[in-house]
């Protein structure tokens, strides 16, 4: 089966720094994919290229193996989209808007749609213009999920959602994934989507830096460890253990960073009297930064602040 999304050398130049450069991205179906990067990195540009709202300078993009320009309507029937700057027909009520978009789609399961409206506690009788940003987002989410698309593209969907809607949103994404659909979420905040995504791609300054499974990243999780021993220990015992880095042994205190499993280190430490053990698991954000960030990014990441990928 063709991947849900596939780009080859996708490039969009705007003359200056904006745009994207030679993006080769493959998103297989049936997963929740996080598309991460700082603001202005090219996330929205990539999404707008996938939707054929703008045309590439060079390169190709396919959705379900179909050309995003030539086979536009066939893709639109199977895809939905919630833009970051969600703009809706403000003079309509939520119900009217959903009716209109449903009619444009062709067929919408009304019972399923009404179920979504109830789940998100949306009042569909209110005019869009009278809704708060969070409530507008709800309308956008219902519109995107009601057609049960095979691919849902969400540009910064979590901005402005209250915790309740955020939770429902995550359930919707997971349900869609469990039914074999694909969810593509862009975000500039890894912590907001890391527990949701199966895989993440990171884009920076228009270039796709990496695509990783969240599970693989977690295997490479970095932990900072500090062990207080009841007796002085020798650094030699711990040096060279798999995954152990930045080892410092000072009398009875050991400090190090461990990548991946703690097993070897703990077994080695067990030979001595262990008085105390502190461990700090670094966030995925820090891992990402450690692997793919720029120099300043690593520092900001290791400093431990759950900041932006762009730190």
């Amino acid at each position: 089966m063709a991947p849900a999304i596939e780009t080859e050398g996708l490039t969009k130049s705007y003359g200056r720094a904006r745009g994207i450069i030679e993006v080769d991205l493959v998103v297989e179906g049936g997963q929740i994919f996080g598309f991460l990067g700082p603001n202005g990195a090219g996330k929205s540009t990539t999404i707008r290229l996938l939707l054929d709202l703008i045309r590439p300078t060079s390169g190709k993009a396919r959705v379900f193996g179909l050309d995003v320009h030539r086979d536009r309507l066939a893709i639109d029937r199977r895809t939905s989209y919630v833009p970051g700057e969600l703009a809706l027909y403000s003079e309509l009520t939520g119900r009217q808007l959903l009716d209109y978009l449903g009619n444009l789609q062709g067929h919408v399961d009304a019972a399923f749609r009404d179920g979504l409206v109830d789940r998100l506690e949306l009042d569909p009788t209110k005019r869009i213009k009278s809704l708060s940003r969070g409530n507008k987002q709800k309308v956008g989410l219902v519109a995107a999920f009601m057609i049960r698309p095979e691919l849902i593209i969400l540009d910064e969907p979590t901005a402005g959602l209250d915790p309740f809607v955020q939770l429902e949103f995550e359930h919707l994404c997971e349900e869609a994934r469990n039914e074999g659909r694909t969810v593509f979420i862009s975000s500039h905040q890894l912590p907001e989507v890391e527990h949701l995504c199966d895989r993440v791609g990171i884009i920076r300054e228009g270039r796709l830096l990496a695509v990783e499974a969240i599970a693989d990243l977690k295997d490479r999780a970095l932990r900072r460890l500090e062990i207080d021993f009841g007796e002085p220990v020798s650094a030699d015992v711990f040096a060279g253990l798999p995954g152990v880095r930045d080892l410092v042994v000072n009398d009875g205190t050991l400090r190090c960073t461990v990548m991946g499993s703690l097993d070897a280190l703990i077994k080695a430490a067990a030979r001595f009297e262990v008085r105390n053990l502190h461990t700090v698991e670094t966030s995925l954000e820090e891992i990402f930064m450690a692997y793919y960030g720029s120099g300043e990014g690593i520092e900001a990441g290791v400093a431990g602040e759950a900041g932006h990928v762009a730190a």
Partner: peptide, 8 residues
């Protein structure tokens, strides 16, 4: 953006 994401 929304309008064109529907099959029209």
């Amino acid at each position: 953006d929304i309008l064109l994401s529907y099959p029209i």
